[in-house]
Amino acid sequence: MALIDHLDHLVLTCVDPDATKHFYTEVLQMQLETFRGDRIAFRFGNQKINLHVRGREFEPKAHLPAPGALDLCFIASVPLDQVIAHLHACGWPIVEGPVERTGATQKIRSVYVRDPDLNLIEISELID
């Protein structure tokens, strides 16, 4: 039995919280959540992304929190062609894809975009 079961949340450090909120709630359609008064998170499925603003991070924090340092892969809840159409409708550029990749449990088909801090965001569908 493995020690770790699943990811609960991760922390993203941003420069412009309004641009980041727009991307994660409008483009990626995650649910905005406020907790502990002024903390912001983006919820999807059973996970969430907590938001820190550079220079105003909450303690404890990563040793070197930096905007643009993440490379994340999300599995879409809809077919990838719908994701692509949604990205086009939002005017959000795809930087690569669709391409076939190897996911954590099986092959995936992915497109890549960048969030406002230039984090690399891979959006994928599972394939056989």
Rank of each mutant, 00 (worst) to 15 (best):
L118F: 13
F74S: 00
Y112G: 05
L87S: 09
H63P: 07
K21H: 07
A2C: 09
G68M: 09
H52G: 08
F35G: 13
L3T: 06
I121R: 02
M30I: 01
K61C: 14
V11R: 08
R109K: 04
R114T: 09
K61H: 15
F42T: 02
L72T: 03
R36T: 09
R54Y: 14
I94Y: 07
A85Q: 14
A104D: 03
L32D: 04
L10T: 01
K48F: 14
G103W: 00
R56E: 14
T20M: 15
D5H: 14
P116R: 06
L126A: 07
S77R: 05
H9D: 00
A69L: 04
I127S: 03
G103P: 00
L64D: 13
L28Q: 05
A19P: 02
A41T: 01
T13E: 11
S110L: 03
P60R: 02
H88V: 10
D16C: 14
R109D: 06
G45W: 00
Q47M: 01
I49C: 02
F58S: 12
C90E: 10
D71A: 12
T34A: 12
L72Q: 02
V78D: 04
R109A: 10
L126I: 04
I121D: 03
F42V: 01
M1E: 13
P116N: 07
K107I: 03
D128P: 11
N119K: 06
D8G: 08
H52L: 09
N119A: 14
F74N: 00
D81R: 12
L80C: 02
H52M: 10
L28D: 03
F23A: 06
E122S: 03
V27H: 08
V27I: 14
P67Y: 05
N46H: 11
F44Q: 01
V53Q: 12
L51E: 10
G37N: 01
D8S: 11
Q31C: 07
Q47K: 10
P116M: 07
D81I: 01
N50G: 05
L64N: 15
E57T: 14
S110M: 03
D115W: 03
L126T: 09
H9I: 00
L80D: 01
F44D: 00
Q47L: 00
V78Q: 05
G68L: 06
V111N: 04
H63I: 14
K107W: 03
L87P: 03
K48Y: 13
E96A: 15
A85C: 08
N46R: 15
V27A: 06
P60I: 07
D71Y: 13
V11M: 06
E33H: 06
T105Q: 12
E57G: 14
Q47P: 04
D115P: 05
L32M: 13
V78E: 04
I40F: 04
G91F: 10
T13Y: 11
R39G: 06
I121P: 01
A104W: 00
T34K: 15
Q47N: 06
D18S: 14
G45Y: 01
